[in-house]
Design a protein around this nucleic acid. Structure first.
Lengths: 148, 148
DNA sequence: TTAGTTGTAATATGATATATTACAACCATC
DNA sequence: GATGGTTGTAATATATCATATTACAACTAA
């Protein structure tokens, strides 16, 4: 299994919105061209970023704007915004019908859950350690290095 | 998305193999009954645990045996054994066709990958922190507490 | 020899991710 | 205020994957 590409698409969108902030017509079609996906996917992800307060948009007019500074947006914020992992279900899918008539079956769930919640937290905390400013800077530097 | 239930099924199997080690006929059907899935799923997961050197089995005869002590088996070992996350692909699915004609498009992948590899490592390291002995002990204690 | 079991292939089914079409609502501008 | 471009979102299609199920050969224990 994998965490869906909407997460990396979200990061790509934000990075591009900053990179091309002085360029006209950075619309969903332009972004879709850079990302390599359908424009509707871009609009969907942008909608989710907007609901999360990360970008602002205006219907009918082109181009989303960032609502916060890049160093105030973490990978975790994007991950949450696009719903990479369902908040109810969690990262790990537990088998759904352990047998309540079996001592192991009726206890394993709550025993394991405690540990798995920690694992998920470790992952999410790690996502919080990187900001979109880091990604943006790394990207600009990579572009600079190309011309050498 | 979620990490498939084969992972928690694997943990359940190992816990049950230990819990019922003195019981006869702990075969794939018995385990399937405790877990609440089809016996073929159990046999498949046991096969993967065997390939990973975690259990031993004998064709035709009932009951798998643990190859190592519970405190020498971590959640990470089970996660790896059942292939919860493809080793090639990684935890995060990157959008596959970023545009090489766009400076962001042709650099975002390698920039992000470095950070995402760290996130995945944080998750996996956290899985290493719990052993099956922990799960087993917690389960036995939960069973003990039931009779109070 | 017989009954029970494992290992695995083959297939079915359902869920989910992504792509695509379509269109109403909206904006900027001439 | 008419026009062209755009967003937001619903509806649908398609492909991939997780899980379930059937089937059976290989094997073991008695």
């Amino acid at each position: 299994m994998q965490i869906g590409s909407k997460f990396t698409i979200g990061v790509h969108i934000i990075t591009a919105l900053d990179y091309f902030k002085d360029v006209d017509r950075v619309n969903s079609e332009f972004l879709a061209g850079s990302i390599g996906v359908n424009p509707v996917i871009v609009r969907t992800v942008i909608s989710q970023l907007r609901e999360a307060g990360i970008v602002q948009t205006q219907r009918g007019s082109s181009g989303a704007e960032l609502s916060r500074r890049l160093d105030e947006i973490t990978l975790y914020d994007v991950y949450k915004a696009v719903g990479s992992v369902d908040a109810e279900e969690g990262l790990f899918h537990f088998h759904e019908q352990p047998n309540p008539d079996c001592p192991v079956g009726r206890n394993i769930h709550k025993v394991l859950d405690r540990h798995l919640a920690e694992v998920q937290k470790a992952m999410e905390d790690s996502l919080k350690a990187t900001t979109l400013a880091d990604i943006s800077n790394d990207t600009k530097q990579a572009v600079d290095n190309e011309s050498k």
